[in-house]
Every structure is written in structure tokens, then in C-alpha cells.
Nucleic acid binder design. Structure first.
Lengths: 214, 214
DNA sequence: GTATGTGAACCACTTCACAGCA
DNA sequence: TGCTGTGAAGTGGTTCACATAC
């Protein structure tokens, strides 16, 4: 069914879903692509086209039922179920990830944490006992882990990723500053604030960006 | 000079710069676009085309001088100088940002931290005394701040962003889960791990992604 | 021989514009 | 009348392929 849907489209769906959730909380029952678009900084046509890959969710002359569309998107994205994650690397960054309160409410649960440092192994962080990296394979053997979060130093990251992939992990959230090499069936999303900063400085340095009004 | 360079190109330059820095540390003097490409998962043509927006940095038959190209990129991106930042929101996330060791070595210094919570205001976090959000304007008046980091709850974020923009901030690193509204001359980069997870689950749910070999 | 730099061809996503329906 | 859904047109970025230079 999901044949030839551009990745960019998939990336936008969670944004729509989040906006719809907010609208629903505020008691709104119907939205137009127009209104959703201005709220999110996306053109209405874009929204309609994106949704059209998956079905017809709106009513002409009226717009979209907020709750209905939200639920459809949740279903499409698999947000109507729980996902399990493991964190590898329990330094400052890994700790922040482990204690971040934003994952659980969205159905993303961290069930295991690993580190290479003997001083860290055995520590209890956010209700999890940190295990040694060497135990990734045995620890996850036969256990269904959906997503791996990599928060190790750059030098260790690729090996960790290899191990996770071997264990059947098919999605990786990568905080390490490397370009991960993974087989084609594995998805990687990089979180790299330094890269974000380093591209913005280009525009800071060169005055106004080439984007509309000054 | 930088007329009509696609944003995607600018986004890739820091990635190249980082890879070159690593090559330089390892003593490498020359690279081809071919080699750099396989290392980064980018086509060689892409790299050459990207660089061609800015000049001719290579030698035919040989490749690129690692140090030279790295320095050129640093110069283009403005990484050859220091940038100042302020953090707004000193909750868990803000603290993690403040104590993150990855910014300073790249020339990004946080010079001020703000929060709305009276219990947090006045606290010393990573050598900075947290100031009240209401003081953003007076605190930054006449002071050159380049980048604002927003780590507040969603509900507070837009107002904070407005204040920062008023103070002349032209680049924002946004950790809040909202679509920021800013004037055209202001750049925003969003860091949102939940959105990243929520788009990957689509592929988890739907088997192998439409991307090459299985 | 080898790898760059680049116009031209290609491809993918976005936007347009309108038919269709409530 | 108002807004969706969508083929068609348009735009922007990527890849090709080769002339050029070392």
C-alpha cells in the first residue's frame, strides 16, 4: 500500500498530527487545509496533496474533522501503538535522553541502557540499570526492540550501530556526529545541533537570506 | 556573492567540513570527491557541484587538499569566528543544552540563560546565573547576540522567540515542539527527536522502505 | 591516467487551477 | 458558496557525462 510516497511527506505527517492534537485539546472540531497551513507555515495545497496519498479524509466545502484526521494519521504512522527503544551511551547526552519526559507520553519507551565505561555500568539511571555495551547482543537476543538511540562518542558510534542492526533494530536515532552506515532496510535520523548551528552561521555571516521580504 | 545557493547545499557544507577535519587529524593531505562521498554517503557529483557554487578548490587528476578545503569551508560558513548564544528555558532540556560540551569547541558560546520559573531564576547553571525571561530585552539591549536557543515548553516558545527576534537575534535553534513564526530575515532550525521517531515508525510499521536493496 | 568542474538531462517535489461535491 | 482532491504545469535539486586540466 505505501508505494512511492516521498520521504518528505512522511516527515510532515507527524507535524500535522501534532497540530491536530492541539486543536482537539482546544475543542476544535473542524479545520481547513488553509487554516492548518497558516498555523504550520505550509501551503494548503501541500497538506491536501500529502493527505491524498493515503485517502480522502475531508469534506468539500467544510474541511477536515479534527479528531478523525488525527486518528487516521496516528494509524498511518503507527502512533496508535507502543514502541520500544534502547539507549547506548550514558554520558551527559545519554542521561538527558534517558530522563527526557517527552518520549513516554508519545508511546516511546526506553527499556534498556548500555555504556562502555565501567564507572557507569551498573549505575541506576532513570530506573534502568546500565549494562555493558558488550551485552547488547545477548541482552536483546529474541527481544523485540524497535528503535536504537545512539548517544556515544563519534569513535564508538558505528560499531554500536552495527551491533544494533544485527539485533534486528530497524530504526536509529543518532546523536553521534558521524554519517552512519547501515543496510538499506534500516532508517536513520540524525540529531545534530552543531550542524544546525553551523549552517545558520552562513546566513548570519551573509546578511539577509534569499527568502522573501527583508 | 551568495546569490541563489540552495539551502540544502548550505546544510551539507558543515558535514563536509567535519569530515575534512577528521581526515586532517588523521594526517591525510588529499581527498577525492569520490572518497569523501563514500565516507559520507553522498555522491561525488553532489560534492563537486556543491563546492562549485563557491569556487574551484580541487586539482584535476588529484583531488582536494584537505586542509585547504576545510579552511575554505570554515571561511564560507563563518566557522572561523566565534558566535554568541543565549538559552531560554532552563528545565531539564535547557540544562542539558547549557552543560553540553559540544558547542564551545566549535566556537559557539552561551553567554546568558533565562527562565520563567522563580525557583530556577538566580540559580547558577554551568557558570551562568539564570535571569528572568522578562529581562531578555533589557539584558540583550545593545549586546550582540547571534543565536537564540529556545528550550521552553511549547506554550511559552512563540513569545520567547518574538522577544529574541526583537533583540536582533537572526538565528534560532528551536527545541520547542512548535512551528515558529518569524520574519523572513530570521533562520530557524528545529531539533525535535519526537518528530524524528514518529516518522520512522511509519517505515517500521510498513516493512522495508522504498530505498534500494533489501 | 585520473579526478575536477559544469552545462544539459533528468527526476522529484511543489504549486496551480479547476472539477466535483457538500 | 466553500473547500477538498487531483491531474497538469512548474520549479528546484540531483545526476550524468564529458571537456578540461594536472
Amino acid at each position: 500500500m505505501p508505494l512511492e510516497i516521498p520521504d518528505v511527506v512522511i516527515d510532515r505527517l507527524p507535524v500535522y498530527a501534532r497540530a491536530l492534537a492541539a486543536l482537539e485539546r482546544s475543542g476544535r472540531e473542524v479545520v481547513s487545509s488553509q487554516e492548518l497551513g497558516t498555523q504550520l507555515g505550509v501551503t494548503p495545497a501541500q497538506i491536501r496533496k500529502d493527505l491524498s496519498y493515503f485517502g480522502r479524509f475531508g469534506k468539500q466545502g467544510r474541511g477536515y474533522n479534527v479528531r478523525r484526521l488525527m486518528e487516521e494519521l496516528h494509524q498511518i504512522l503507527g502512533l496508535d501503538r507502543k514502541w520500544t527503544m534502547v539507549v547506548v551511551g550514558v554520558g551527559q547526552l545519554g542521561r538527558a535522553v534517558l530522563s527526557y519526559g517527552g518520549f513516554a507520553p508519545q508511546g516511546f519507551r526506553i527499556i534498556e541502557a548500555f555504556d562502555a565505561d565501567p564507572a557507569v555500568i551498573g549505575q541506576k539511571v532513570d530506573d534502568l540499570i546500565v549494562k555493558p555495551v558488550e551485552q547488547i547482543r545477548e541482552s536483546l537476543a529474541g527481544r523485540p526492540v524497535d528503535i536504537g538511540i545512539v548517544a556515544t562518542p563519534a569513535a564508538a558510534a558505528q560499531k554500536v550501530i552495527d551491533a544494533l542492526v544485527e539485533c534486528g533494530v530497524r530504526a536509529i536515532l543518532n546523536y553521534a556526529p558521524i554519517a552512519a552506515h547501515v543496510p538499506a532496510h534500516v532508517r536513520v535520523k540524525d540529531i545534530d545541533p552543531v550542524l544546525s548551528l553551523q549552517s545558520m552561521t552562513f546566513y548570519l555571516k551573509n546578511g539577509a537570506p534569499p527568502a522573501g521580504t527583508a
